[in-house]
Design a protein around this nucleic acid. Sequence first.
DNA 1: AAATCTGGATGATGATCATCATCCTAACAA
DNA 2: TTGTTAGGATGATGATCATCATCCAGATTT
Lengths: 189, 189
Amino acid sequence: MGHSQKDKEKNHAQIVEIAAQKMRESGTEGPGVAEIMKAAGLTHGGFYKHFDSRDDLVVEAVEAAVAQSREGTAEVIEGAEDPLAAFVDWYLSSAHRDQPGTGCAVVALGADAARADERVRATYTGQVERYIAQLEELLAGEDEDVRRRAIAAVSAMVGSLLIARAVGDEDLSEEILAAVRASVAEQHL
Amino acid sequence: MGHSQKDKEKNHAQIVEIAAQKMRESGTEGPGVAEIMKAAGLTHGGFYKHFDSRDDLVVEAVEAAVAQSREGTAEVIEGAEDPLAAFVDWYLSSAHRDQPGTGCAVVALGADAARADERVRATYTGQVERYIAQLEELLAGEDEDVRRRAIAAVSAMVGSLLIARAVGDEDLSEEILAAVRASVAEQHL
DNA sequence: AAATCTGGATGATGATCATCATCCTAACAA
DNA sequence: TTGTTAGGATGATGATCATCATCCAGATTT
C-alpha cells in the first residue's frame, strides 16, 4: 500500500466497489465506514481523504452498483441465441437470487432509493429506464403496446426477485421465479 | 395514562401500530426505540415491560403490518362490482405509492424480510401466499395456468410499486403504475 | 384501608457510529 | 538529495443507540 496517486485511485475504486456490494446486501445504511474500509484493506481514518461524507460514498456506491447491473445485463445478452430468454433466465435464476451483493441494483436498492436524495434517485431512475428500453428491444413487438409490456415485464422481474429473496419457503421461492420466467417468455410469441 | 392492565394492552397495541407504520416508511432498522415510544406518547424506559428486545417488536410490527395489508385488501375487494379492477386500481394508485406507512407490507418490507429471522420471514411468506391465492380467485380462469398468472401478477404489482416509489421522475412513476394496471387488467378477458 | 404489584418515567450504561485532529511516511518537485 | 505535499494510520470526539437499574405512583388484592 503505497501513497502514490495511482494507489489512491485504486483504493478509492476499491472502497466504492466494496460499498456497492455490501450496500446491496444490507442496505445503504447497513455497513459502517469502518467495516467498509477494513474490507478494502484500509483503516477508517483515511476515509475522509476520499469522501466528504458517508452520504457521498452512498452516491458513488449506488452509481457503481447500477453500472455493474448495466454491464452484467449487456454481457448476458451479448451474442445469445435467444437474448430475451438469456436475460430472463439469468435475472430470475437462483444464483442471482442468492447473490444480491453482485446482482441487480434496482431490486436490491429500491427501498433505499425511495428514501435517498436526488442524486441517488436520478442514478436509480437511469437504470430503470435502461431496463425498460432493453426489454422494449427484446420484446420486439410491432404493436404500440411494446413499452407498456416492457414496463410490465420489468416490474414482474423486479417484484419476483424481491419476493423470492424474502420468502422463507424454498419451494415457493423457486416457483415464483419459474412462474415469472414463463410469463415473460410467453410474451415473446 | 393510567396503570391498569387495559392501559397496558392499549399502549402495547399502540407501540406496535406506530412501529408497523414507521418501519414500513424507513425500514425495520430505521426508527429507534425512543422515537417509537415517543410517538406512542410514552418514554423509552417502559419499552422493556412490553418486549424482551427490539427484535421482538420488529416481529410484532411486521405481523401488524401484514395484518393491515390483509384487511386493506379485503376491504377494497368486498362488494366491488369488478373486484380485480378495484384491487389493482387501489394497489397501483398514487395514493398507495405515496403512503408506504399504511400500505402493502410485502413491498415495504421486502428488503428487510430477506435479512430477517425466521419469524419475520414466515409472516411475510404468509402474506405472499395470501396475495397469490387472492389473485388466483380474481383472475378466475379455467385454465391450469391460473396460479402461474397469479404469481406473475403479484410480482408485477409489487415490483411496480417498488419502482414507482424509488424513481425520481414523477411522470415515469405514474407511467409505471398505469402500465401494470393495464397489463393485469388485460389478463381478465 | 393497608400491602403488594407493576407499568411507566428518569437516568445510567456500554456499544457503535460518523466525523475529525494529529502524526507518520512515502511520493514527488526542486 | 532535500523539502513539501498528501494518503493513510492512530486515536479522540460527540452523537445516537439498545438495554437496564432504580424509583414513583396508580392499580389490584387482601
